[in-house]
Design a protein around this nucleic acid. Structure first.
Lengths: 209, 209
DNA sequence: TTTATATTGTGAACAAAATATCAACACGAT
DNA sequence: ATCGTGTTGATATTTTGTTCACAATATAAA
């Protein structure tokens, strides 16, 4: 009954949904009300089939004559990706990368915001850094529990990574975006995304070679 | 004859090779000379089978008793990933992210280095920023051709992305790492890696939900 | 020597993701 | 009305990536 949602979208589809939405916002701003799969595909640099497949997976139907209704599509993607009351994130490690991410992200998404940052450098703690309050790493647990945070971006030094990730898990964090060069291990119920700039560059170097 | 190399490693394998190597450097520093697949797997948070499969693909053989010889493995990975005489990279867009990447990367890899940066802000051009020389974006073509650069990291604003990417292609760049939120289209012979922070965070938010 | 154990290397099965193909349909032109 | 065009939605196929299962082998212990 009721809940017939597949509730297990392929990871790649979720990523594309996020990007469809951003592009569709632009289209709305340009006054576009309807869009065809091939138009969206072109803007995303994908094939129309891929676009239709993704939309099929989220159960959205267009019309043969007008394509998809931009506004409805955006709304539906929001229902899938966003939490009802929004989600707040913490950034742990306020070095160059942490600050860059914080500044870059601020105000970008309505339902997703960076609530606070943490660092172990006393020069940075207990003041506003890059527009958000920065506390000492030892305060993570207290803050996360009080504020009900479940997602953390990890941008600390390789040396600190293990300790800090342990603190995050103890605090009850359920999703970690790890920009550290150190691979992390997390329990089954915690979601982990890892990204490493050096790896991306080395891959490119290999491909270009 | 001779060349019997498959020369088409799976993309994921290449990424992991880059990470194996970094981890193996640590092991060398700790005095480890040999390593088993399950040890490497544990450090990378993978399965031993995955590790052995990757090493099989690059044609490296270990021994049942001692596992793999760390030094040899590192050397072989280098032969596969690195260019003989190294590769130099440019960073285009010296905002927060561009500077963060530059500082983070400097001196990290022997065969891969950031040679110069480009921006259109006259406050930044023609001086040293984050440790490397920064020129005006109009000088990209001249610089790239003179210095024989083939890889660029793109961290400009969404508005500037299209123009700048056109300049990069005209300059003959063969690999672009795009951190812009704007999807890019490139000719077949140019390699493109795209990464978007917001998308990663939204994916995490979806998973955690 | 024989047995037990731990390891590698790899074919085969499996899973995830992308792509191709096509029936059904809406709409405008004739 | 009918035909041609362009579109969606869905099934089928292909490609890519991961995991399973096990033979082959080296070593140490019995």
């Amino acid at each position: 009954m009721g809940k017939n949602k597949p509730q297990a979208l392929p990871g790649k589809t979720v990523e594309r949904l996020s990007q469809y939405r951003r592009i569709l916002y632009n289209s709305i701003r340009e006054g576009k009300t309807n869009i065809y799969s091939h138009e969206l595909a072109k803007m995303m640099n994908l094939t129309p089939v891929q676009v239709r497949r993704d939309l099929m997976l989220i159960g959205y139907s267009g019309s043969q004559s007008k394509g998809y209704v931009v506004k409805d599509l955006v709304t539906l993607i929001g229902k899938i990706i966003d939490s009802d009351k929004g989600q707040r994130i913490i950034v742990v490690g306020m070095g160059n990368l942490g600050r860059a991410i914080t500044s870059y992200f601020s105000g970008k998404r309505e339902k997703l915001s960076i609530a606070a940052a943490f660092d172990n450098d006393l020069q940075k703690t207990d003041r506003i850094v890059a527009g958000i309050p920065c506390y000492h790493i030892n305060q993570i647990k207290e803050y996360v529990e009080k504020e009900g945070i479940s997602i953390a971006v990890l941008t600390v030094s390789p040396e600190a990574t293990h300790d800090v990730s342990k603190k995050l898990l103890e605090a009850g964090i359920k999703g970690i975006l790890n920009y550290t060069s150190v691979p992390l291990t997390v329990p089954e119920d915690v979601h982990l995304e890892e990204y490493d700039i050096v790896t991306s560059l080395e891959k490119l170097a290999y491909l270009v070679k």
